[in-house]
Lab assay of single mutants.
Amino acid sequence: MLDDRARMEAAKKEKVEQILAEFQLQEEDLKKVMRRMQKEMDRGLRLETHEEASVKMLPTYVRSTPEGSEVGDFLSLDLGGTNFRVMLVKVGEGEEGQWSVKTKHQMYSIPEDAMTGTAEMLFDYISECISDFLDKHQMKHKKLPLGFTFSFPVRHEDIDKGILLNWTKGFKASGAEGNNVVGLLRDAIKRRGDFEMDVVAMVNDTVATMISCYYEDHQCEVGMIVGTGCNACYMEEMQNVELVEGDEGRMCVNTEWGAFGDSGELDEFLLEYDRLVDESSANPGQQLYEKLIGGKYMGELVRLVLLRLVDENLLFHGEASEQLRTRGAFETRFVSQVESDTGDRKQIYNILSTLGLRPSTTDCDIVRRACESVSTRAAHMCSAGLAGVINRMRESRSEDVMRITVGVDGSVYKLHPSFKERFHASVRRLTPSCEITFIESEEGSGRGAALVSAVACKKACMLGQ
C-alpha cells in the first residue's frame, strides 16, 4: 500500500517536472537572447534605426563620474514606483581627507489618484512632500541643488532636461508624456511658492545606482535594477552614441532593455503563462523582457503555473481556492519566502493557508518547484541581457580580458534567497573573457542622484555659470 502511494507521488512529481521543464533555458538559448539583445542595442544607438529599435539606448548626458572633490548639501528625489523618497545628502571631506556622503531620508507613498490623475496632481503632491521634508529638517530658507531620480523612459536633451516617452509600472498621470519632466517639477514648486529649489540633474535609477557604486569602486561602469521592473545602464564610447554629437570619451546610456521583445525577438521563448500575464497587464505587448524578470510579474506567473497544475490534477487534489483564482493573489514576496523555507515546509504551508488552501507535504514541495522554475528562468533571462552589455563593452574597448564592476539594486536581487547566485553564475558562463565584480548599492537611487548633481554643480562652477 505504502509502495503504491510512494509510486503515485513519484509519478505525480515526474509529471510536474515535465510541465515545469518549459521554463528551462539551455545555454544556447541564452546565447541567442544575448546576441539578439546586442543587435537591438546597436539599432538603438544608431541614428537611422533608433526610432524602430525596441531597446532605445537613451543617452543620459552623464559623462563624468564623481571624483571626490564636490562638497555641499544636496536634496535628492526618487520616483520610480508607488513609494517616493526625499533625501538630504551631505557631501563633504571625511576623516583623513576621505570623501564622505551622509544621508537623511523619508519615504512617502503615492496615492492612487496622483498616479493615475493628471501630471499637475502628481507633481503638486511631490512638491508637497518636499515642503514637508524641508519643514522637518528646518531647511526651507536654503535654496538647495536638487537631483531627481526618475525611473521611467526619458529622452534627455541635457542633464536637466528630459522628455517622458511613456509611463510604465502602473503610472498613468495624463499630460506628462511628451513633456519635460524637470519643467513639470519646477512648475509645481513655483505653484507652491513656499520654498526654492535648483533642479540641476535628472537621472534614471540605473544611472543613480551606477554612480553610487562608483563611489565604492571606481571600476563600476554598469548599473542595473532588478526590482519591480528590470533595466540597466553602462558607459558607452561616445563615438557609438549617434544621437549625441561628439566622439570623445564616454557617456552613460540608459538601455531601457525592459522593452526588448516588443518587436518579436522573444516570441519563441514566451510561454502561455507569459501571454496571460501580458494580456492582463496595463501595457499589453510592451516591456516583454521586463515581464519575464521583474517583481511586478513574478508572483503572478507562479500563480498561473499553480492553476495549470491544479487543472492537471497534480496539486491540491485538483481544487483551487477562490483566493488562488484571484489575479495578483500570489505576491512576489511569497516566491522569495517559499524558496527561503528551511525544509520543514512550515513557511510554505503558512503562505498557502493564507490563500485558503490546506496543502499536503507533496503540495508544498511542488509549489516550491514552481517558484524555483519561474525565478530561475528570470535570473537566466536577466543574465543574457547583462552578458550582452558586458561583452559589447569588452569588444568596443578591444580588451582581451576586461575587469568590470556592476552596481545592482532592486528588491528581487536583494531579497530573493537564490536569485543573485543563479544570476551571477549564468552571467559568468556567458562572459568567459571578463572578470566581473557585483556590488549592491546602498540607498543607491538617492545618493547617486545627489552625486550626479554634485558633478553638475562642479561643472557649472568651472564653466562660470
Rank of each mutant, 00 (worst) to 15 (best):
D198E: 14
L134Y: 04
C129T: 06
I366A: 11
R422H: 05
R397A: 13
K104F: 06
H317S: 12
T332D: 10
A10N: 13
R250M: 15
S411L: 13
R429H: 13
E242P: 06
F334N: 01
M121I: 10
Q287N: 15
M298Q: 11
E67K: 13
W257T: 02
R303N: 00
E268W: 03
S127C: 14
Y413L: 04
S131D: 11
I189G: 09
E48L: 03
C434I: 03
D78M: 07
L276S: 12
E22Y: 07
A11E: 10
I293V: 13
E28V: 04
N83T: 15
D262C: 12
M210G: 02
A379Q: 00
G264Q: 09
I436E: 00
M41D: 02
F423G: 00
G72Q: 02
L304D: 03
R7I: 14
A454M: 12
A201W: 05
I436W: 00
V200R: 07
L185S: 01
D311T: 08
A10Q: 10
C230G: 04
K142E: 12
A208M: 04
L88N: 14
D247W: 03
G261A: 03
P284K: 14
E245H: 15
V401M: 13
D198W: 03
R325F: 15
I110R: 02
M34E: 03
P284I: 08
K142A: 08
H105C: 09
L276D: 08
S263G: 15
S263A: 11
T354F: 03
A176C: 11
H50M: 11
C457K: 12
L164C: 14
Q323V: 09
K161I: 07
G328K: 04
Y289M: 07
A378N: 06
E442T: 03
V89N: 07
S280Q: 15
Y413P: 02
E443Y: 04
M298W: 15
N180A: 11
D187V: 02
V181G: 08
E242F: 02
C230H: 00
G318Y: 05
E96Y: 14
L134T: 03
R275K: 12
V367I: 05
E440G: 10
P284V: 13
L165K: 15
F316N: 03
M402I: 12
T116P: 03
L352K: 00
D78F: 10
V91N: 06
Q106L: 11
S64D: 14
G227P: 00
L301D: 01
L315M: 11
K32T: 07
E395I: 10
L146N: 15
H105F: 10
S360D: 09
G464Q: 08
V16N: 02
R250P: 12
D29E: 03
I439S: 08
D247A: 06
G446N: 13
H137Y: 13
C213R: 07
H50W: 09
P417V: 10
S336N: 14
D262W: 08
V335W: 02
D205T: 05
L20F: 07
F150R: 11
F334L: 15
E242T: 02
Q138N: 11
G410N: 04
M107A: 14
G183C: 04
I351E: 09
F269R: 01
R428Q: 10
T332L: 06
I189R: 03
P153D: 15
V16R: 04
C252R: 00
D267L: 02
D198K: 03
P432Y: 07
S336L: 04
A119H: 05
R369A: 10
N231R: 05
A114W: 13
E435L: 14
T376I: 11
G448L: 09
H141V: 10
E322F: 05
M8G: 15
F260I: 06
I366M: 08
H141G: 12
Q18W: 15
R5Y: 08
S76R: 05
E242G: 04
A378L: 07
R5G: 13
P66W: 04
D217L: 04
M298A: 11
Y125N: 04
I390Y: 00
E272S: 12
R377Y: 01
S76L: 04
K13P: 14
H105K: 15
T116A: 15
V401H: 15
L134M: 09
T255G: 00
A450W: 14
G258P: 08
S151V: 09
A173G: 12
S441R: 02
K291I: 02
K136E: 06
I436V: 08
E372T: 07
V310I: 08
C371Q: 03
E242D: 14
I211L: 08
F334Y: 04
L301F: 12
T437K: 14
S76W: 05
V203L: 05
L79D: 01
G68S: 09
G299D: 05
E40L: 00
G178W: 06
L77E: 03
L122C: 05
G92P: 02
S151C: 10
A387P: 00
C457G: 13
D113K: 10
L292P: 00
P66S: 11
T209R: 03
P145A: 04
Q38Y: 05
D247V: 10
E248A: 09
A460E: 14
S127A: 10
K13G: 15
M37A: 05
K161A: 09
K161F: 05
E372P: 00
R308F: 04
F334R: 10
E177Y: 03
K143T: 14
D262I: 13
R325M: 15
S212H: 14
M41F: 14
E248H: 10
N283G: 05
E17W: 04
L451W: 11
F123S: 07
V203R: 05
K12I: 06
D363W: 01
D247E: 11
V455E: 07
M139Y: 09
P111Y: 05
M107Q: 14
Y234K: 00
K458Y: 07
L25W: 14
C434N: 00
T354K: 13
T149F: 06
W99S: 12
Y289F: 11
G162K: 13
C371M: 02
V91L: 13
C457N: 15
M121T: 14
K414F: 03
L301H: 03
E265C: 11
Y215S: 11
D3P: 07
R43H: 03
R303W: 01
T228Y: 11
L355F: 09
A232H: 00
C213P: 01
M238G: 01
Q106H: 05
A119N: 11
H416A: 03
K140R: 10
L77Y: 04
F148V: 14
G343E: 06
K142C: 12
Q239Y: 11
N179K: 13
E443P: 01
P417S: 09
L463K: 14
P284N: 05
K172T: 11
V16S: 14
S321N: 09
G246I: 10
V241F: 04
L122F: 12
L288D: 01
Y289C: 07
M87I: 05
D124Y: 01
D124S: 05
G94L: 10
R369T: 10
R333S: 09
Y349Q: 11
D198N: 14
F152A: 13
I130H: 00
H317Y: 12
M139N: 04
T116N: 05
G388L: 02
L352R: 01
